[in-house]
Computed example of a mutant assay.
Amino acid sequence: MSHVAEELRADITRLNVGLGERAYDILIGPGLFHEAGERIARLRPGARVGIVTDRHVAERHLATVEAALRAAGLTPTPVIVEPGEKSKCFRVFEEVVDALLAARIERRDVVLALGGGVVGDLAGFAAAALRRGVDFVQAPTSLLAQVDSSVGGKTGINSRHGKNLVGAFHQPILVLADSAALDTLPLREFRSGYAEVAKYGLIDNAPFFAWLERKWQEVFAGGPARIEAIATSCASKAAVVARDEKETGDRALLNLGHTFGHALEAGAGFSQRLLHGEAVAVGMAQAFRFSARQGLCSPEDALRVAAHLKTVGLPTRIRDIPGDLPDTDGLMDLIAQDKKVSRGALTFILARGIGRSFIARDVDPAELRAFLEAERGAI
């Protein structure tokens, strides 16, 4: 891939995901959707661009992006899906692939994922499968997608057996994180994304978590603190992806809170009852409580994690999730379907303290069951 040297505006941050010939830039800052055409044209001049987006995002951003693409000599074709996790399914995947083929998207063209994590995962998987691999660009519109799912090349859809069980690793050629897109994000969606920001502090960056405890209101308000939080999160993920692209080693640390969280999401029917980041928030609080129960970290650390998540308005316990959920046996079955299970052995990301997460293999199912029973009974 050839990169043309360019001067960036002072309010744009550039990070690079170092994957050799497949390295790519993450650009973070306001107004990037207005520049999408020229930035994509630098990489793929004259390309057709299949824009996969959802109905809500299309209302806010599609016209801007289409105009930018046309102005740069590119040919856009929108493919609009329904918003929400339920679009990450085989039926919608087939519809998206068919629409991209009908738009004559070829190997030298581009699929543009304009939306949150659902659109990014769905569009990325479609790009990976289309003609055995078409380039794609991530244009994330949610905080969660900007700091997590748009970076690293994980793409996929859900199955009735669980979340993200069908997919491929397919790296983007560019990520355009337009921070101004977050200004119109509903508060609940922003909070959901913030859980993934906090995750980076809890994995291996205790000073960042402490910074968030002090600065979270500024992050929510926007401005320099928000850009700094996004850039720090993306830099953390980019470094991990460069070391372990296919999640054979420490990339699994990025799943802190996700084993519990994915089971709760599935139990809630992948619905608006529980957004992904909300599930991760509960899952991270549970991971620290389980770690404390195992004597791995102090109870004070577990309380501190839950207190911060609760302060920003995120759920931290099963009781915070509205509606009915599976019983303990049901949750154990859902956890057993997790991608991190290896030959039946339960693998969790646990912690020896804030910023000291690690991969715990062969977690004792009996101890996990007892913990879940206690969690369900907690008041």
Score class of each variant (00 low, 15 high):
153 G>E: 04
221 A>G: 08
360 A>Q: 12
16 N>R: 15
108 R>F: 06
305 V>K: 08
24 Y>I: 04
115 G>W: 06
321 I>W: 05
85 E>V: 04
284 M>V: 03
284 M>L: 07
149 S>Q: 04
314 L>P: 07
374 A>Q: 06
273 R>L: 10
52 V>M: 09
229 A>V: 11
167 G>R: 00
346 L>Q: 10
32 L>H: 02
290 F>L: 15
262 H>Q: 04
71 A>C: 11
9 R>I: 00
2 S>L: 15
13 T>L: 13
266 A>Y: 00
139 A>G: 12
134 V>C: 02
255 N>S: 12
314 L>Y: 02
340 K>W: 06
325 L>W: 09
137 V>S: 04
349 I>P: 08
218 E>Q: 12
198 A>N: 00
246 K>H: 06
111 V>K: 12
22 R>V: 01
121 D>L: 15
150 S>E: 02
145 A>C: 00
130 L>K: 04
92 V>C: 06
175 V>C: 05
21 E>F: 03
246 K>W: 02
379 I>R: 14
210 A>Q: 05
190 F>A: 02
191 R>F: 01
172 P>W: 09
190 F>Y: 11
217 Q>T: 09
216 W>A: 08
325 L>K: 08
80 I>G: 09
150 S>K: 01
310 K>A: 12
366 A>Y: 02
69 L>T: 06
182 L>F: 01
76 P>E: 00
172 P>R: 13
305 V>L: 08
55 R>W: 10
316 T>Y: 07
152 G>C: 04
165 L>D: 02
83 P>H: 15
277 G>P: 02
159 S>D: 04
241 V>P: 10
70 R>A: 13
194 Y>I: 03
107 R>A: 12
240 V>H: 15
27 L>A: 11
